[in-house]
Design a protein around this nucleic acid. Structure first.
Lengths: 119, 119
DNA sequence: TCAATAATTCAAGGATTATTGAAATATGAA
DNA sequence: TTCATATTTCAATAATCCTTGAATTATTGA
């Protein structure tokens, strides 16, 4: 990810409603949620929600698909990954002391759990 | 880091000049750079730079200290770490498939092998 | 003290973003 | 086709952010 692409991605997250939507959708998983449910959850009007969803989609942080009458939004995991990667690689590049403590955090340990030494 | 703190941090990075400053300062290391040098590097007026530096400092992404006539700015590694941690932990929480590929990237592998502090 | 350097603050204006409500579009059901 | 639902689009306003240049503060050296 380049700086030119990172700026709008950060801008998309720099707003309470939008950041809330992204976090909600990440937790929701690939199935996502219809716009209506998101509007209720966020407590904003449908038209306002639509505005924010467009921002997030433009920044490639969420994706949408139509399903019957609803439009279903879901997290764009690739875009999120790219942004995190930008922050860690491009932004903290050459200064591993920034990244290291984050990587050391058990909450961020990758999928494969470490083998437990049996008692 | 909480959402309330993350929003202004993302906002601070959501601007070309400021993102450039942060990246420059990260590469520069703890010694940092005086405001004047940063203004030259960024190609903006001193007063405009000052405005952006204040935004970044308010978001705890950079720090400042006076040294003779200059004010030296440097990256706030702790703040940057917190923001990355927020994105990975709070934002991608429960969905390790987002974090895993980033963590697997050799560029982000920590210097020392990790050690779990909490059992 | 006076002048020079380094940077910040302030006020004004321009530019961009966010919110609102009304109107439009798309889909599915009667 | 006609109606109801789900969502978006549009235009207007409000709010926030960025830039500019002049004035101000802080520090150092003659």
């Amino acid at each position: 990810m380049k700086e030119k692409q990172a700026v709008p991605a950060f801008a998309a997250l720099a707003q309470e409603t939008r950041l809330g939507i992204v976090r909600r959708l990440v937790r929701e998983g690939p199935d996502g949620l219809p716009a209506g449910k998101l509007a209720d959850a966020a407590g904003v009007s449908p038209s306002n929600l639509s505005f924010h969803l467009k921002e997030l989609e433009g920044a490639r942080l969420i994706a949408s698909r139509r399903e019957a009458r609803s439009i279903i939004y879901s997290a764009d995991y690739e875009g999120l990954r790219d942004l995190i990667g930008f922050l860690m690689k491009d932004c903290c590049g050459g200064r591993p002391e920034i990244c290291a403590p984050v990587l050391a955090d058990p909450c961020c340990v990758p999928v494969k759990p470490k083998k437990r030494i049996h008692a």
